[in-house]
């Protein structure tokens, strides 16, 4: 399984001088989100998947939400948990390196183990469309380290 930090960039942020080079005074952990749309572009008869800015987004399109984090605390942090409520207008496109919640964020786990109550009141296995929240759990982030997490969603 792929580790959650796709691009774990450990910066030598020990000591005053190098720490100044990024975000002096940003003493917490930074979180920054971006979103891109996955589109297929055909160039010279070859179909390619490209990521573009979210303009002219319509139902059925694939979105990639990315959240970058950076530990600017000057010391390691522990039990780092990123929680992302899924916007109502999208549904999760596929499972990933995260836990999911199908009950509005009360409990998290793997999708395969989750059940939801259907319209008829009968419990059924949860599907991607049932996911309401995502959660990434990192035991620790070294001082100055950064990385990112992402999920793929489809506009309902």
């Amino acid at each position: 399984m792929k580790f959650v930090t796709r691009a774990l960039l450990v910066c030598a942020a020990v000591g005053g001088v190098s720490a100044v080079s990024f975000a002096q005074g940003t003493q917490g952990v930074e979180l920054a989100g971006t979103v891109m749309v996955e589109r297929t572009q055909t160039v010279d008869g070859v179909a390619k998947t490209v990521l573009v800015e979210p303009t002219n987004v319509v139902p059925g399109e694939q979105l990639v939400f990315t959240t970058r984090y950076r530990n600017n605390t000057g010391q390691p942090v522990e039990n780092f948990v990123i929680t992302n409520p899924l916007p109502d207008a999208v549904q999760l496109a596929r499972a990933g390196d995260f836990e999911v919640s199908v009950d509005g964020g009360s409990s998290f786990g793997s999708l395969s183990g989750a059940t939801v109550s259907g319209a008829d009141g009968v419990s059924r296995p949860a599907q991607l469309a049932d996911v309401t929240h995502l959660r990434w759990v990192l035991p620790s982030i070294a001082s100055g380290a950064s990385g990112e997490v992402e999920y793929h969603a489809v506009v309902r």
Binding site: G28, L31, G33, T73, P76, N84, A89, V90
Partner: peptide
């Protein structure tokens, strides 16, 4: 469509939370 992530962590023995920017874009 609006997306915001939050994070909680422990630093120096204290619990903290941080919120990301909120992404917003319109469905056409």
């Amino acid at each position: 469509i609006s997306n915001t992530a939050t994070a909680s962590y422990e630093s120096g023995g204290a619990g903290r939370t941080v919120q990301s920017n909120t992404l917003e874009f319109r469905v056409d």
